[in-house]
Write a protein that binds this DNA or RNA. Structure first.
Lengths: 218, 218
DNA sequence: CTTGCTACTCACCGACCGGTGACAGATTGG
DNA sequence: CCAATCTGTCACCGGTCGGTGAGTAGCAAG
């Protein structure tokens, strides 16, 4: 509604809402940020055009114009995602010398576990991946797995898995375990009866994970 | 409104739609079946009063009357779920003698893997569990985990895990891995780069899983 | 100042959502 | 026979959704 005293042009009390500057780049960034924030905090369930526009404080029309709708916006998130691994997971070996494939996988497991625990957006995306198979989520999924595979390849160096072990299948199991346990814990602080609240609980989980890795790879 | 031609009582052309019999028990069952079918086939995303009523071929009002709304209906599903484990997973040892804890866990892993692969409803519920933390899903989750824990306890018999291994944590990891890999495969036929389409692919996954179990428990 | 472009907002659409109150027809008990 | 009850249907509510067409405010060039 227009103020009753429209004749008065001077903003008597400073209009608390700071004026939106006309700046396309900034607006695009605000939309993207809002989308990521919303997805990370609320999950994919209520992720939609209206909610993003509300979160970005602009009209949803701009999302259509700048990103071509929600699909394009999700794609933009996926592009951003490419830098996730390189941003959040160290690329070096933490000063350790990885002598064996077992050393490598143990370290990768720990790094991935911690990184996923620390990143709500990534968790939501993983949950999304296993709940739906739309075009949107496929794009995200692809970007994520590609980045992850590249990271692993980089870390692997020249180490090779021991003979007689289907490393790809085993590693898929290990990463699956990590993803599921982190997601379950994020939602309900437990997984399969195992409580996962404080750091001590997570220590136990990490130990179990290392034991599994070492059990297979020595 | 009363029909204008209320005097005409005879349905001239045979009413193709077969008359719904007035039968509360049958209707309740139809609603419950529709809910389970809908959840299994469409997932929790579009699971709602309207959709269930449509699927059951009755008015949504009846869901409110008979189940007290969607919450009550979900609770009824949860109750049904209690019999899931006992229905779908064999309680005996398949003619094998489980001599060691490793034998036991290997067998449990295989049974759980196959059972989950074969049950879309259960998969959807697991996906729901890690995507949301509403009251509804908590009830389902509780029913499921309780039934599962009971089954494991029953199968365990007097076997005890080896000393020095945090069996609870390790087993949580193993079950987490199974759940995640099955869910991922159900949606996209792969998990962490491992293709999971045909039986041969699953054989590899099962072998990897067994190797993990044996690596920990011998 | 006018013209034209860009950034942005607004009002509105049809569709579907969960939820509710009123009502119709069959069944049952007095 | 009437009245109460049970089973089921229907119309309607406010709200939110994704999507669109029209209009407004800032700004720069001529």
């Amino acid at each position: 509604m227009a103020p009753a005293n429209a004749a008065v042009k001077i903003p008597l009390e400073a209009p608390v809402v700071e004026k939106r500057v006309r700046n396309r780049a900034a607006t695009e960034q605000a939309i993207l940020d809002a989308a990521k924030r919303l997805l990370a905090e609320e999950g994919f369930q209520n992720f939609g055009i209206n909610a993003v526009a509300r979160g970005a404080g602009c009209d949803k029309q701009l999302i259509y114009r700048y990103y071509g709708g929600l699909n394009g916006l999700v794609e933009a998130i996926g592009t951003d995602l490419g830098s996730w691994v390189t941003d959040r997971i160290p690329d070096d070996t933490g000063g350790m010398f990885l002598l064996t494939y077992g050393d490598l996988m143990e370290r990768l497991s720990m790094l991935f576990l911690d990184a996923l625990r620390a990143d709500p957006l990534m968790r939501r995306i993983v949950a999304w991946e296993i709940s739906e198979n739309s075009e949107q989520v496929r794009r995200l999924s692809e970007a994520r797995s590609k980045a992850l595979a590249g990271w692993i390849e980089r870390m692997r160096g020249s180490l090779v898995p021991p003979k007689g072990v289907d490393a790809q299948a085993v590693n898929a199991m290990i990463f699956a375990a990590i993803q599921h346990i982190v997601l379950a814990a994020a939602v309900s602080d437990q997984c399969a009866g195992l409580v996962l609240k404080n750091g001590k609980d997570w220590e136990k989980a990490a130990t179990a994970l290392k034991r599994i890795v070492r059990g297979v790879y020595g």
